[in-house]
Nucleic acid binder design. Structure first.
Lengths: 292, 292
DNA sequence: CTGTTAGCGCTTTCAA
DNA sequence: TTGAAAGCGCTAACAG
């Protein structure tokens, strides 16, 4: 050790990796970094991996399935030994490689026990359905659903399916698709305000949409929750300080990251097979939703 | 190629790395992922590196210098060939390793031409000073400065120094330190409202602080900008849809990431030495600031 | 228990 | 142009 110190010796990681056939590196391939929900997810992964002596390499796909395939294979070809993906919709070429090379892989943000690869996440269908039921319990019958693009996003599609599944007692839901950003929320509300028969509650399938929606409603003089109730999804950091507090659905994103990392490390180290894992969510009732 | 295809051959990255002494992997060690400013920074790095055929490994330090050292060395020991750090304040142990092992390193979020390692970022001192001058131009003489922790954060300290440098004509600035989050903004405003001689303008050294501040002011019935002007720093995605639009200082974070990646790749590929690089910022005037 | 060496799979040099 | 082999720096097996 002293000699190492004085001579400044540092083991060569490539040689070690070649010899042991281990790189202790895990790849996470996510749609985007510009949505804070993915940032906290990565945070959970990173903290857990760091504790286990692993490194995290990341890539973004901008919601493109072919980019997902390319970037995943690129990271694999640079030495990643396991893969964390989003959703349960992936290019056949990628799946083929995963099976052929037996790459430990996890699909996150989704709980889908019938999917061929293990999933760790929420039951998006049920969560959205529960949100509808909650609003129904407050007396709302006409809903507007603000959501991001459904193309290449199975999580959003599942949430929408859940919404439609739970409509009852003559409830209606008008879906407004927009960009997944606060700007998207603003333009969706501009459209919302042109509706002849205006819904009494707005369910935003993401909190950033709710933020834009809230500002635009305020700008147009529509009071929350007196004139319209609004409900979010994600329970981002600012949800409770929003005025009034934003009713939202808390998703344990950081925990999902930690759990994903744990499962993969446990597989890599001990061969423990990964089971589909459902994470619990809950509705946080605050001031933006009111009884009609 | 056909044979490779049929037999499913994939080159072994560790063997290649051992032979070429290149891993094509760059490490970014940032304070936290739960601040969207770092997410967009990483995004810039990642996109650029992907285009150049490099991989990005990341680690977070939670603003601890020793964690920064530990995590940086860990990533280096796992094969990263270059390092992207935040700020110009680093543990001696880390610096020693960087020099001894001649690790290409870049310090970001700061432009500091006299620092021993190359920096790429903004002149935090000047930017904050210009913000003060802007507010002074609107007639404000009493300012409140909301800011995150100064401990282990040279960027915040530089901004504060810039503020104090530009105070003139009997201007005063009350500094309120709080958590760097929207919750921090809320508690800072609670304190602000107890001040006997209330400042007429609030300069938030980060937009997330401004968000919390804005909500809390609204909650307390203080009108923006009639009763108080408020100005942010970062120009986050929602700044222009905030009601009224948030006056803020635009920082080209994504571009900083791209630039950092380019410089490092150019050094690695062509040996081009890295020069200190200053990125331009600008004040975006919107509705939250008014002439007194 | 210490010391030696084969071998991991690639790149690159050199020989044919 | 194609083919053979040395060597990158480590780990692990094996011999002493």
């Amino acid at each position: 050790m002293d000699a190492m110190e004085t001579v400044g010796f540092v083991p060569n990681p490539a040689a070690r990796a070649l010899s042991t056939n281990r790189t202790r590196t895990i790849a996470a391939v996510i749609p985007t970094l510009s949505h804070s929900i993915f940032a906290s997810f990565l945070n959970g992964i990173e903290v857990e991996l760091a504790a286990e002596g692993y490194a995290l390499v990341i890539a973004t796909t901008d919601n493109s399935k072919s980019a997902e395939e390319d970037r995943s294979l690129a990271l694999l070809d640079m030495g990643a030994e396991a893969l964390i993906l989003s959703g349960a919709e992936h290019n056949p070429g990628l799946l083929k490689q995963i099976y052929a090379r037996k790459i430990p892989t996890l699909c996150t943000s989704i709980f889908s026990p019938d999917y061929e690869l293990p999933t760790v996440g929420y039951d998006n269908f049920a969560v959205a359905a529960d949100a509808v039921e909650f609003l129904r319990g407050l007396g709302h019958r006409q809903l507007a659903i603000l959501h991001g693009p459904t193309k290449d996003n199975d999580r959003t599609r599942e949430r929408l399916a859940g919404v439609h599944d739970r409509l009852q007692d003559g409830m209606t839901a008008i879906c407004i698709e927009t960009d997944l950003s606060s700007h998207g929320g603003v333009s969706a509300i501009k459209h919302f305000l042109t509706l002849e028969e205006r819904p009494t509650a707005i369910l935003c399938l993401s909190d950033v949409l709710a933020l834009g929606a809230s500002f635009e409603l305020q700008r147009q003089g529509v009071s929350i929750p007196q004139d319209v109730s609004i409900m979010g999804f994600d329970d981002l950091e600012w949800a409770d300080i929003h005025e009034p507090g934003l009713t939202s659905i808390h998703l344990p994103t950081t925990k999902m990251g930690q759990k994903s990392a744990q499962l993969l490390v446990d597989l890599l180290e001990n061969g423990t097979p990964i089971e589909h894992t459902k994470l619990e969510t809950r509705i946080i009732v605050r001031g933006t939703t009111a009884r009609i």
